[in-house]
Computed example of a mutant assay.
Amino acid sequence: MSKRSTIIDVADLAGVSIKTVSRALNDAPHVNAETRKRIKDAAAALDYHPNIAAQSLIARRSYLIGLTYERPSPSYVVELQNGALARLENSRYRLVVLPFRDVANRPTELGSLLLRAGLDGVILAPPACDQHELLSMLDRQKLPYARITPHREMDRGIVTVIDDIEAGRAIARHLLELGHRRIGIVMGDPSHAASAARMKGYRLAFVDFDAELNDELIASGDFTYDVGYASAAKLLHQSPRPTAILAQNDDMAVAAMAAVRDLGLSVPGDVSVAGFDNSEVSRTTWPQLTTVRQPVNEMAWDAVDRLIAMLDANSGEQASPPLRGDHPYELIVRASTAAPR
């Protein structure tokens, strides 16, 4: 077999130093356009592909970006990973996925896991993004991080956010505008700050309509289908039953629709149902689910992009990025909600 091309071969063919080849292929500054083109043409002619492991040894960087999350819906995970992977495509960085359970009770254990993984930086999805002890640990160890939809300590690290309060307010207002007043609510995991923020939005919507929010119609949940079903069934057995159910994510909303049907009732004829996220299941269930679009894919892409820019700034390759990215939510009205009978 012929010998694999090396960076030395590229440098010889282009007539430059190895260091210049490295800077050009990594799109670092201070390489003029003509030289950069000559180096890239030489690399293409030699079918040269940089060895990431070798780059890591030379630069004393791993080029690994971590992504950690806790027990979200499958659709949320897919959106999260797809957004991160889309940004890393054709870059020198690779993604390491590190799911972790019970973050709120084990923040230092997660911190130790992240620090042992040899990462250059990490993306913290809820609820890790709001764990003070974890953030302090990463700060002390100087591991850069980006936080997706945090609700606390917004001045720490990179953040990409939507306004969960206003998003919750918008979907609750939709049901109130249809004429619903007896609205059941299935809460999310209490360790996720978004759950409390969305609930605050619901309450604001009831104030907007001078309507009373019945606390007996608020059921606990944890963002999973099974608990969502049990909570919705409990609400539906009340007398009088709610005319609408507002679930804090789409998985629990779809579970509520199943609970409605299992009682011989129809959606939205007897009970309207609304969710949150605009995940794949909201579009494939029948009737399609009214929900709020949370741009998880875009927020993950943005978080990774800002984190990489920070890492490159720390190594002197470019200017520091803005630390905050705000993303819009969107109320999506579909067939699962209608005026009460």
Rank of each mutant, 00 (worst) to 15 (best):
S2R: 15
V10S: 06
L13V: 10
A14D: 02
T20F: 08
H30I: 08
A33C: 04
A33L: 13
K40F: 08
K40M: 13
H49P: 00
H49W: 08
I52K: 10
R71T: 13
S73P: 02
S73M: 08
S75E: 13
V78P: 00
E79W: 00
G83Y: 02
A86C: 08
S91F: 08
R92M: 13
Y93C: 07
D102A: 13
V103Q: 03
L110W: 01
G111K: 00
R116C: 06
D120Y: 06
V122H: 04
P126A: 11
A128G: 05
H132F: 15
H132T: 15
L138V: 04
D139Q: 15
K142D: 11
I148C: 02
P150T: 02
R152C: 08
R152D: 12
E153R: 14
G157K: 02
V161S: 12
E166N: 11
A167W: 06
G168W: 04
L178D: 01
R181V: 12
R181D: 09
I185F: 06
V186L: 06
D189V: 08
D189E: 13
S195E: 08
A196M: 07
K200E: 14
L204M: 12
A205L: 04
L213H: 02
N214T: 09
I218E: 02
S220W: 01
D222W: 01
F223N: 04
Y225I: 11
V227E: 10
S239D: 12
S239M: 11
N249D: 12
M252D: 00
M257H: 01
R261A: 14
L265R: 00
V267W: 00
S272V: 10
V273A: 05
A274N: 03
A274E: 04
D277C: 12
S279C: 10
V281L: 15
Q288N: 10
M299T: 05
M299G: 02
W301D: 07
D305Y: 04
L307H: 07
L311H: 06
A313C: 10
N314S: 12
N314V: 06
S320H: 14
P321Y: 10
D326M: 09
D326E: 14
P328N: 10
T337F: 03
T337C: 14
